[in-house]
């Protein structure tokens, strides 16, 4: 006789798996899924000043999307985080390449360690330090005037460029690590094969290394793009509050002005934009993975 059905059920992998995952899953349902559903629901409700009235409406979305200020803020957020992503990934690639291909194996973890150390200190202080560096009487201007290169200190703060540099610095290791991992996976004999077949180094890099590193690059793009578009601190500190991004207006609507339905609609809108961008990159990644096989 085989074991009784009940015992077998209790011993089955699926049941064991569900039991094991249930604490974490329940937590995620209560504190992630339910809040997100509520946020979506609120975005279709009506604002009654101090209360939220559950009358279904699309007015919040209409209001948000017809508001030129919100539209320009959303556009600015996409542009800034797009710029940050581009700068971060382009700056990070040579470093990942250097560590993967030119650093001896024994020293690789030391280099990775060196790169991650700065990011274990306060994010707020790191962001603020860029204000110190870029300020009217800050480090760069002191050096420039000290060397006599300019009489008038440069106005660098409160600009999209300043916001971008700050964020590019903040997310540097998030870009380096995935690219490094994908470069490490490349079979070195493939590169030798490329050279052996008479291609020069540049061509080998272009035709072998870069395509194989693409999954890491796309991973880096996602990892940098998603959190930067929702960044609250940098526009406040480096943008001087004059160049708000989506996080700042969502926060305004939800907490300061307390228009929860409108704030929710804005949050959901921002999330949809992020999701759309993420899907484009996931699609690209899948194309690359298929292409490389």
């Amino acid at each position: 006789m085989a074991a009784s059905p009940l015992k077998r059920w209790a011993r089955s992998e699926a049941v064991n798996g569900y039991m094991m995952i249930s604490p974490t899953l329940i937590y995620a349902i209560l504190l992630l899924a339910a809040p997100l559903v509520t946020l979506v629901a609120y975005s279709f409700f009506t604002d009654g000043y101090l209360v939220v009235i559950p009358d279904l409406t699309t007015a919040n979305y209409a209001e948000a999307w017809s508001d030129p200020i919100f539209r320009s803020i959303l556009l600015r957020s996409v542009i800034v985080s797009g710029l940050v992503t581009l700068v971060t990934v382009v700056l990070a690639f040579p470093i990942a390449y250097f560590i993967s291909f030119h650093v001896p194996a024994a020293k690789k973890s030391r280099w990775l360690f060196l790169i991650t150390i700065p990011f274990w200190t306060s994010y707020l202080i790191r962001v603020f330090q860029w204000k110190v560096i870029l300020n009217y009487n800050g480090v760069i201007n002191s050096i420039l005037t000290g060397l006599g290169l300019t009489d008038h200190p440069l106005q660098m703060l409160n600009s999209i460029g300043a916001i971008s540099i700050t964020l590019a610095h903040a997310y540097a290791p998030f870009a380096i690590l995935p690219i490094f991992v994908s470069l490490e996976k490349i079979d070195r004999s493939l590169l030798e094969a490329g050279l052996d077949l008479g291609e020069n180094r540049l061509l080998t890099f272009w035709r072998v290394t870069l395509p194989l590193a693409m999954p890491g690059v796309i991973g880096a793009v996602m990892i940098v793009f998603i959190p930067t578009i929702g960044d609250y601190v940098t526009p406040e500190l480096i943008g001087g509050g004059k160049l708000p991004m989506v996080a700042n207006v969502i926060y305004q609507q939800l907490l300061k002005i307390d228009n929860k339905p409108l704030g929710s609609a804005m949050a959901i809108s921002a999330m949809l934009v992020v999701a759309a961008v993420a899907l484009v990159f996931l699609f690209l990644n899948r194309r690359f993975l298929r292409g490389s096989k």
């Binding site: 085989a2 074991a3 009784s4 011993r11």
Partner: peptide, 17 residues
Amino acid sequence: EDISSGAVLIDGKDMSD
């Protein structure tokens, strides 16, 4: 591994449970 049907006996004893 649980068996789907049949029996495994060790030293004369059914091992299913």
